[in-house]
Structures are given as C-alpha cells and as structure tokens.
C-alpha cells in the first residue's frame, strides 16, 4: 500500500528554486530516508509534505489524503519529530504528552490509556513528573519521539532525529525506531548521518539542489555509484604517494591530507603501501558516505 506519493513537487522562494521537481514514493511499513547536504531542500520538502507550505507545483498525497487540501486530516494520522526540540519547557514530561494529545482531539480517557506505554517507550516512566530542563539531550529526543506517537500514527516523519546525541543515545534512539518499524509503522527520515541511513533505511533518495539525484536501497546505491573497496591514506606524504601511485586506483580523490583510493581490487595498492615507509592507511568496503560525497561533492554547503 502506498503511504506517501509526491510527484513533481516544486517550491521557490523569491525566484530562487529550492525544490525543483521532487518525486517520492513510500510504501507501508518501510523506512525511507531523504539524504542531502545542508540547503538541499530537505526541510522545505518536508514542510510541503506536511501541508505547512503550499508548493508552487506538484501533487502530494499522504495516506490517501490530498495535500495541502486535506493536510489536517492527514496530520491526524502522522507523527512528527522536528529537527529542533520544541518540547514545552513549562511542563513536566507527563504534561507534555497530555497537552500534545489534546491537539489531536484525544479525550482524557484515551490519553490516560496511552500514557504508560508512551512513557515506557521513551524510557521515562521513572521521570514522568520531571521538568523538561532536567532531562538530558537523549531523554528530550526520546520524549519528542513519544510525543509524536500520542495519536498512534501510521506514518512518522523524523527530521534529523539523532543530531547532537552521544553514541549511546543514538543507539537507543535507533532501537526505538526499529521497534516502531517492527510494529508496522512507516518512517520518513531525513538525516545527514550516512551510518544512520545505512542502518535504518530500506530505501533512500539523495536530494541535492532541490533535485533527487539518486534513489534506491543502500546496497544498490553503493553498487551503482561507487567502486566496492576504498583505501584511505593519511598524513603529509599521502598526496605525494597518491600522485606517484594513483594509477593503481580506479579513481582517486584527495581531501586535505587524505587520499581516497576507490577500486574493485585493493591488493596492489595495499602491497605498495606496505612497502612504503611510515604510511598510515585503512582499507574498508565502500559505504553510503562515499556515495554521498561522490554525488554531492566535497565542498562545504553552508
């Protein structure tokens, strides 16, 4: 079943196109990732999908509701974890959930029934009456996720859900998202953590300058866009070494004092490196980050 479909989505601000013909399709139960560098148009796309911004063109439908025409009805079945925490600082953990549930028209009985489960999911059952300011960053994120679940949504939008979290908190967050996927929820995720996307997402689209420049499963994207093996060579001598031995790589990229050597077979490169004096290097399989950098370039985007 198709949960979300966007065709030819366009939006520009003051004559500058931000989203230029984006197509997206998400099936029920999958985790879909929208990746892109800063300023690629991820947030604008998300706002258009939620019906908070009227697009200049294109068709959007979510859970069978046309957007923005029936956006409110669609949002009744959607949960949103925004990029920036906007929990209510005047309230406790419990009050945040109760007050948010009212915006969905849930009555007190329904809220009371859901509250223990949500607190347990967020791992905050013992902190139900704590003030928001006393929570750690990870707790706040988990509470924001629990808040997005008050209406038992079919589709969840998560905008960079683990930005700013420590590794422990990120893993807990991923665990929570996996539990939701196991329950059959559909997840729409934006991130620029490639390991996160690779770990969680069934399918990805990479957005750059308002256009989808690649789409597919993480494995297919790696296979299609990049050589399977990478040797990274570090240090002052890396560049000179690369200039002399670049012919051993199928493709070579240099970033500062690091040389990236992409290849189908890394034996020759590794042998040469072992023979050289004091070279620091790492050989590894290619990953999504390599694809991302290959497709969107290494220049800063902010």
């Amino acid at each position: 079943m198709r949960v979300l479909s966007a065709q030819g989505l366009r939006k520009s601000y003051g004559g500058t196109p931000v989203v230029s013909g984006v197509n997206l399709e998400i099936e029920a139960g999958e985790c879909f990732g929208l990746l892109g560098p800063n300023g690629a148009g991820k947030t604008t796309t998300l706002r258009c999908l939620l019906g908070l911004t009227e697009p200049d063109g294109g068709e959007v439908s979510i859970l069978g509701f046309p957007i923005p025409g029936s956006a409110r009805r669609a949002r009744a079945r959607i949960g949103v974890v925004p990029q920036m925490d906007n929990l209510d600082p005047d309230f406790t953990v419990r009050e945040n959930l109760v007050v948010y549930a009212r915006y969905f028209g849930l009555d007190q009985g329904a809220v009371d029934a859901r509250l223990p489960g949500l607190l347990e999911f967020a791992g905050l059952a013992h902190r139900a009456d704590a003030k928001i300011q006393t929570l750690s960053g990870g707790m706040k994120r988990r509470l924001t996720l629990a808040r997005a679940l008050v209406n038992d949504p079919d589709l969840l939008f998560l905008d960079e859900p683990t930005t700013g979290l420590d590794p422990q908190a990120r893993h807990v967050m991923w665990e929570g998202l996996r539990r939701l996927l196991n329950q059959g929820k559909t997840i729409f995720l934006t991130t620029h953590f490639m390991d996160e996307a690779e770990r969680l997402c069934d399918r990805l689209s990479i957005l750059d300058q308002g256009r989808i420049i690649a789409a597919g499963t993480p494995a297919a994207l790696i296979e299609r866009h990049i050589e399977p093996l990478v040797v990274e060579i570090y240090g002052e001598q890396a560049r000179t070494w690369g200039e002399a031995n670049g012919h051993l790589c199928e493709r070579m990229e240099t970033a500062g004092e690091t040389v990236f050597c992409y290849t189908h077979g890394d034996e020759a490169v590794l042998e040469r490196l072992r023979g050289a004096q004091g070279m620091r290097y790492l050989n590894r399989p290619a990953n999504l980050e390599d694809v991302f950098l290959r497709l969107t370039g290494r220049e800063l985007r902010d």
Binding site: L52, R75, A76, V80, P82, N86, L87, D88, R147, N151
Partner: peptide
C-alpha cells in the same frame, strides 16, 4: 517554538 509543535498536529 510551541506553535511549530502544535502545527505538526491536526
């Protein structure tokens, strides 16, 4: 950003 949070609800 309380309003933003509310706008994500119906």
């Amino acid at each position: 950003r309380t309003w933003d949070a509310i706008l994500n609800a119906p």
